[in-house]
Design a protein around this nucleic acid. Structure first.
Lengths: 127, 127
DNA sequence: ATAGGTGCAAACAGTTTGCATGTAT
DNA sequence: ATACATGCAAACTGTTTGCACCTAT
């Protein structure tokens, strides 16, 4: 990430102007609205570099494509809406999560993902 | 799943003789020890049918290929070893997980995945 | 006998890589 | 001027599908 290029500006701008984590495809589509000629490979390369540099964070979701959000937020988890597929941030965590591991295992971290209906979809039928 | 075939016997036996969830590749390898000519496509087809019939359960893991375990076990979670990539069962859960959701959200379920070093890899360097 | 199952290889989707060209410094 | 970055297409990986052959019933 040594040079400032139009493609990197488009990619970073797309991430910053979105309030939810984006998948590579969503990010590519969003950045192409600013720079239509943008290639997929460039998006993947930028993601890798931004993650390596600590600017981006990978959000891995069970059963869905990984998404990316700006790094630096406090420890949190996510809520995946079954209806609209939006991924929401869930602040806070629980004590004792890491201690669930079997004896003799070394726990280095954990993920918690909640599933259900988000505020917007609760009560509404499928989109 | 209408007929009893050697390949299906090998696949089901592989699952039942293993105490942890297997990825499609692991399952294929294990079943091939019983029936070396087994094709990948057959493994995927069997997985799909066994899940549909309720005999197998999908275990989705953030950032890793899905694994499969016998259905019907009590609620539990999993531990993914960073070194050997094996997925281990973690018995128990925590109270209050579903209540982490933001107000107004309806939580229907959750996943917890722990990461770290399993008993076999703790202390050992990378394989 | 025959419908369902299998193995192979081709088709796919998502991600990565090689290379000639473009461009920020 | 010269690295570094980009776009394209080919390569890879993991999963699915089409099809001719095989086999449990």
């Amino acid at each position: 990430m040594e040079r400032q290029t139009r493609q990197r500006e488009a990619i970073c701008a797309a991430i910053e102007s979105c309030d939810r984590p984006l998948s590579p495809a969503e990010l590519c589509e969003a950045a192409r609205r600013r720079l239509p000629s943008l290639g997929v490979a460039t998006v993947y390369r930028a993601i890798r570099e931004l993650v390596a540099s600590g600017w981006l964070r990978i959000v891995e979701i069970p059963g869905a494509a990984a998404r990316y959000e700006r790094a630096g937020k406090p420890h949190h988890h996510h809520f995946l809406c079954r209806i609209c597929n939006a991924l929401w941030e869930v602040s806070g965590c629980l004590r004792g999560v890491d201690a669930l591991a079997p004896a003799g295992f070394v726990t280095e971290g954990h993920d918690i993902t909640l599933y259900g209906l988000c505020h917007d979809c609760r009560g509404a039928g499928p989109k």
